[in-house]
Amino acid sequence: MNLKEKSKEVRIETLKLHQRAKEIRIASSLSPIEIFVSLFYGGIFSFYPKDPLNDKRDRLIISKGHGSICLYPILADCGYFSKNELLNISKPGSFLGSIPDPVIPGYETINGSLGHGLGVGSGMAYALKISDKCQKVIVVVGNGELQEGSNWEAIMFAANHNLDNLILIMDSNKKQMLDFSINILDIEPFKNKFEAFGWECIEISDGHNCDLIIDGLQEAFSNKNHKPKVIIVNTIKGKGVPSLEQSPLAHVLSLSDLEIDEAIKGIENE
């Protein structure tokens, strides 16, 4: 499978979802597309679309739930639910909302208030480890979310309990709600901090290159060194839409139908 083309397809479908439901945080959902494409099509992550809670599955905790609408077309494509459901997003009776909920097949947890996902994922990883189970727990966060102190409690907990079955993926798009993160609260460099807390750190320079992300995932999945792993994936918020890529307020911006049509044409012609 050509994962670059699959990523383009998902980016276009995500923009179409925004066209149907303008309340979607579209910029936040465009940056992690290659992360989710690499997980679900890269042959590393274990999942069961027809039996989503199968005990053999790897666990995926999406802490930045508002920024994972791009996962909807991936889950539909993989067979978790009908692709026709994408047409009903945010309509009465549909389980697809502008903020994901665990009623959606493929979502493990409630993904509302930021800062909770890593703690939940650490607990899951600990439970799996003491039960001698081999499944991995993957947690996806945004860089701004790591300003929440609850994350650092979980980071200490995971290192203290040698949770080498826990993989944190940071969608490091350098922005948050109202500005570039460096102007709100600069907590870079992340790599040094994670290593100081006892984590192994892998950094992906181009977070829109699936090959690089898969290499990082393979390294994290295979390394049994008694350390939790973090993969810092450097991405662009609003990837594929130049106006969003350039704006410090991309997080809160919506696109007009014309802007969405123009963005789709641009992606198709890449």
Score class of each variant (00 low, 15 high):
9 E>M: 07
10 V>E: 03
13 E>T: 04
16 K>S: 05
17 L>W: 11
21 A>Q: 04
26 I>K: 10
28 S>K: 14
31 S>G: 01
33 I>K: 12
37 V>K: 03
38 S>M: 06
42 G>P: 07
42 G>A: 02
45 F>T: 03
47 F>R: 00
52 P>D: 09
53 L>F: 13
54 N>E: 04
55 D>A: 09
57 R>Y: 01
57 R>V: 08
57 R>T: 01
61 I>Q: 11
62 I>G: 08
65 G>L: 00
66 H>G: 00
70 C>D: 05
75 L>H: 08
81 F>Y: 15
81 F>T: 00
85 E>I: 15
89 I>C: 01
98 S>I: 07
102 P>N: 09
102 P>I: 10
104 I>M: 09
113 S>L: 14
115 G>W: 07
116 H>C: 02
118 L>S: 09
127 A>M: 04
127 A>I: 08
129 K>C: 15
133 K>G: 07
134 C>Q: 15
135 Q>H: 10
141 V>Y: 02
141 V>A: 03
141 V>L: 10
142 G>M: 12
148 E>T: 06
149 G>S: 13
155 I>F: 04
155 I>P: 00
155 I>N: 04
155 I>M: 00
157 F>V: 08
167 I>C: 01
181 S>H: 14
183 N>D: 13
189 P>Q: 03
189 P>R: 12
191 K>C: 10
192 N>T: 15
200 E>N: 15
202 I>D: 12
203 E>N: 14
206 D>Q: 06
210 C>D: 03
212 L>C: 05
213 I>K: 12
213 I>S: 07
214 I>D: 09
216 G>A: 11
217 L>F: 02
218 Q>F: 15
220 A>Q: 09
237 K>S: 13
240 G>H: 04
247 S>Y: 12
247 S>L: 05
251 H>C: 12
256 S>D: 08
256 S>Q: 01
259 E>P: 07
260 I>V: 13
264 I>K: 12
266 G>S: 10
266 G>R: 05
267 I>Y: 04
267 I>L: 06
269 N>W: 03
